[in-house]
Design a protein around this nucleic acid. Sequence first.
RNA 1: GGGGCGUUAGCUCAGAGGUAGAGCAUUCGGCUUUUAACCGACCGGUCCUAGGUUCGAUCCCUAGACGCCCCA
Length: 501
Amino acid sequence: MAEEKSKRDENALIAERRRKLDALREAGNPFPNDFRRNALAEELLQSYDRHEDEYLREEDVRVSVAGRMMAKRVMGKASFIKLQDRTGQIQVRLERDRLPDDVYVAFKKWDVGDILGTSGALFKTKTGELTVMAEELRLLTKSLRPLPEKFHGLSDQETRYRRRYLDLIMNEDSRDIFRRRSAIIAYIRAFLDAQDYLEVETPMMQTTAGGAIARPFTTHHNSLDMSLFLRVAPELNLKRLTVGGFERVYEINRNFRNEGVSTQHNPEFTMLELYRAYADYEDLIAMIEAMLKGMSQSILGTEQVDYQGEHYDFGKPFERMTVEEVVLKFNPEFDSAKLRDRDYLADFARNLGIGVEHSYGSGKLLIEIFEKTGEDQLRQPTFVTQYPTEVSPLSRRNDDDLFVTDRFELFIGGREIANGFSELNDSEDQEERFRAQAANREAGDDEALQYDADYIRALEYGLPPTAGLGLGIDRLVMLLTNSPSIRDVLLFPHMRHEATP
RNA sequence: GGGGCGUUAGCUCAGAGGUAGAGCAUUCGGCUUUUAACCGACCGGUCCUAGGUUCGAUCCCUAGACGCCCCA
C-alpha cells in the first residue's frame, strides 16, 4: 500500500534525480560522512566581507564550507553556486580547470537542493560579493525532490505547516521565528534560574486532570489497565512540590486541551508555570512585568512591540483594572450598584446573548460579561485583578472581600497571556471548592475540576503561603514575532489528515 | 456549529461550457565574474474527490475532503 503510494508520488523530476542517484551508487557511496567544514557562511561574511579582493588574495584565506545548494548558475566552464548553512548563504565559484579532473563535469549533473561540501580560498567578485574559489567539491547528500521555485519560494500555508522542513529550507522568516522562540524560552530560564528557581518536570499523564478548567484528552495504560488523562495543567503537582519544600519551582512544558483548533488554539501548547512561596499575587505581577520588559528589550532590542498593525508599549507601567472596573468601563449602561446582583447580572448577560444556566452564580455571570464585552478591548498590556471566587477554585480569597480572589490575568492585544494568583492553601476551603466543582460536574459541566483527594492530603501537610502563575509561551512568541496564527510559532502545528483524493 | 474565500504542472500563478496556459525548475545545446544569470529547443496535467445537468464539464449545480479568514 505504502509502496503503491510512493510510486504514485513519483513524477518525472524525482525519477530523473533517482536515476542520477543510481549512477552515483555505481560510482561509490553517494552519502559520505567524512567531510568536515571549518567555517560558517555568516562568520565568513562578518570576518571578511569588509576586506577588498586584493587583501583576501594576499592573505590566502582557505576555508571549508558545506550546505545545501540553493542556487546554481552555470556559465560553460565556470559556475557560481550558493550554499546555505544554519547561519546563512555563501557564494562559491567553480572553475573547471581549478578543480580535480572530472569534478566539474560531475557537478553539472547535481541539482539545486543537493548538499555539498567545498574547500578553497576567499575572494571577491567584481560586484564585490565574498566568494569561495573551489579547489575541492563533493556531493554529500543527493536530494531527490525539487525545491520550490527560487523567486517566490514556498508560500502555500498548508504545505508550510505540513512540511515544515521545506518551509525552513526556503523561508528565512520562518527560521527566524523559531530561533526567536528558542531565545525567548532561554531568556525565561535565565531569568528564573537567576532567582534560584528550580526547574522540574511533572507527569503529562495523570489519573485526574486538575489545575485548570478544561476538557482533557483521555488515554489508556494497557498493562495497568487504567485510564489516564493528558494533563491540562501541571499546577497541582507543582504545588505538591512546594509543599515538599521546593519553594521556587517552574516547569516549561506542554499542556493538552481537548478543544477547538484555531489561530489562537492548538490542542497541545506550551506553558510556563511557576510557584513561589512567601509571595503573593502582587509579587508575581511585579515579576512578570519586569520579565516581559526585559525580554522585549533582549529579544527585540526595544520595549516597543509592533503586532499586526497595532503597537504595544512594554516600556510604560502596565495598566491595572479589576474585573468589575472592566465591566463598568465597557458597559456604560451597567448599573454599578448591581455588580453582584444575580438577577440583574443574569438579565444583563441574556441581553448580550450569553446562555445563562441555573447553576451560574453572580461571580460566573460577571466573568461571562467580562469575557464577552471586556477582554477583547484590553489592547495595551493590562493586569486585570479581583476575579470572582466562584470561577477561581484554586485561588486564595481576598482578605477584605470574600466574593473575589487575589488573582490576576495579563492581557495584551485582547488576549490572555498570563494567569496567576495567591494560592489557596487552606485545605478545608479547598475541599469545599472541589465539592462545588464536583456539583457542577454532576450538573453536566465536563470542564469542571475533578476532585483530587491526594492534593487535599498534600495541603493538609501545609502549603506555605505561595503565589503561582501560568504564562502561555506560544501566544507570547506570537506577539514577539508578529505572527498572526499560533501555527506560525509551532514547528509542527496540529493539522487534520492530509486530504486523500 | 454558521458564513465567506480558495484548491489548475514540482513551485508561483493565469484561464475559458468545446484539443489546458505562462514564468521558474527539469532535459538537451551554447556560454570562465553570475545575482530571479542569459540565449535556443524540448518536456511536463487525476484542472481536490464523487455524483448531477449537458451533445460535451476542469469550468455550471449538489455533496464531501483539505486549507485560509470571520462569527458563535
